Measured scan of single mutants.
Amino acid sequence: MASQGTKRSYEQMETDGERQNATEIRASVGKMIGGIGRFYIQMCTELKLSDYEGRLIQNSLTIERMVLSAFDERRNKYLEEHPSAGKDPKKTGGPIYRRVNGKWMRELILYDKEEIRRIWRQANNGDDATAGLTHMMIWHSNLNDATYQRTRALVRTGMDPRMCSLMQGSTLPRRSGAAGAAVKGVGTMVMELVRMIKRGINDRNFWRGENGRKTRIAYERMCNILKGKFQTAAQKAMMDQVRESRNPGNAEFEDLTFLARSALILRGSVAHKSCLPACVYGPAVASGYDFEREGYSLVGIDPFRLLQNSQVYSLIRPNENPAHKSQLVWMACHSAAFEDLRVLSFIKGTKVLPRGKLSTRGVQIASNENMETMESSTLELRSRYWAIRTRSGGNTNQQRASAGQISIQPTFSVQRNLPFDRTTIMAAFNGNTEGRTSDMRTEIIRMMESARPEDVSFQGRGVFELSDEKAASPIVPSFDMSNEGSYFFGDNAEEYDN
């Protein structure tokens, strides 16, 4: 783990906690998980779902989305002020799938948001429990990260689609708070800032007046979040320049895209947490497990152990491969979309394939898809080993990566060399080191050039047997250095459309 220093740990961010010791953190995270579980059980009762239907990941996603929508204050306010045809701002819903006479049927349900809020609060001892809501947002974000390569979004903001390893959390809503900021990748933060800068260039009043003052505060806050992700002084200094700019424009845009590229080699610290679907927490609570009393951590053995003992089902389209669908969801559960496939294969105990080789589309089923041909199958979400999630980018030494994705962002704290394609990355730096950030740029390029592919990161860190909950005997895996390590390699994943 990167030293926490003055930073709060993510469990504290996750639970809005002030400084807590490890036991208190485990208890408050457990409380959050228990609340999600209780809410899910109650919703299944309301909807009269069978046990099997309640364990269907598509039903879980609909129920999670309903509660997130019920608590989305800004959108609710907007919907009330701008009524649109056929949208009731006070209601929320989605597809629920039921097994009827041996076939899967889709039923569109509609609930009062007020009623959903009441059920959620009741499951969370009367609190709004925003930490639990954020947790579900991060699960949705991790699922998107594993399912889609955001080529269009990258290109629109002047970045290269091969930089997708920097895009963790790119679909997280803005209201996801400190826990959300911690899991956002460098590219995601750059993209958010670039969008602001572009608006400022096109709209003279963007930075002016009372609204402009708020915009400015948001801009500086985002700059500080991004600065905190960088691990070298030169990158941090460049972020200070971007933040202090009187009138952010093209120079800042250039600096930010430069920094994003540099992060492929001088990786930023991005938190990883295993956020599971509500249909995993519900049955665990129903079986009598007391998360608050037992304590829970999002970055240790607990999620692995929970998945070892969970039964989750998914709808499967006619030509999809259930094992591939399982891999997709497994990666999402562990926030591992940008991790090295060699490491993932070792931990999972079966070969993890790149996205383009998977015969599976996303987990969600569109409303126009034919239910007649839908089957369902068990998702295999178990693992051979477990490993500690990392909050750091690993040290800054790398190795060759593949054509589709030119770097990785480690999820697990496991000893290995970190793949990246130096030639491709360095070719993108057209040696432009003039301007006010020239000395920093020169320094950053120097550090990137001296990074050695064969150097090892996370020295001495290994994986653990599932029986080793105290992480007492690390097993340090050895990897084939020459092997392909990137998930979005030469990829044809669908595009994420909101």
Rank of each mutant, 00 (worst) to 15 (best):
K48M: 13
R152I: 07
P95M: 15
P318H: 13
T15W: 00
R8H: 00
K236D: 05
F253H: 11
S176P: 06
A2N: 00
I406C: 06
P318A: 08
K273M: 07
G158T: 02
D16H: 08
R208S: 13
E339D: 14
L154Y: 06
V100C: 03
F429P: 01
V186C: 06
S60P: 02
L341S: 00
S84I: 08
Y289E: 04
G37K: 07
G200E: 13
P303T: 15
I301K: 13
N101R: 08
L358I: 13
S3R: 10
N430C: 15
N432C: 14
R267S: 07
K90V: 15
Q4R: 00
W207M: 10
L61E: 02
R461W: 10
Y385C: 12
T23A: 12
L466Q: 13
I408N: 10
A27E: 08
Q231T: 06
S377M: 12
A251Y: 13
A218Y: 08
E252D: 15
F291G: 14
L166T: 12
A428L: 00
T433N: 15
D455M: 12
L315Y: 00
E14Q: 07
Y296H: 15
S359F: 09
I408M: 10
D421S: 05
P419G: 00
T396I: 00
D468Q: 05
K113D: 06
I63A: 06
M448I: 07
L276F: 13
V100R: 10
R389D: 04
S392L: 03
F479C: 10
Y97S: 02
D72K: 06
P303R: 06
G5S: 13
N124E: 00
V352E: 10
L256I: 14
M331H: 07
M105C: 14
A153F: 01
I41M: 11
P477Y: 01
G435A: 12
S141Y: 09
Q168C: 09
G158R: 05
D160L: 01
N211A: 06
R19S: 14
G462L: 00
K348D: 01
R436A: 12
P322R: 08
P477S: 07
R382K: 10
Y97H: 15
G435N: 04
D72G: 12
R422A: 12
G288A: 15
G200T: 05
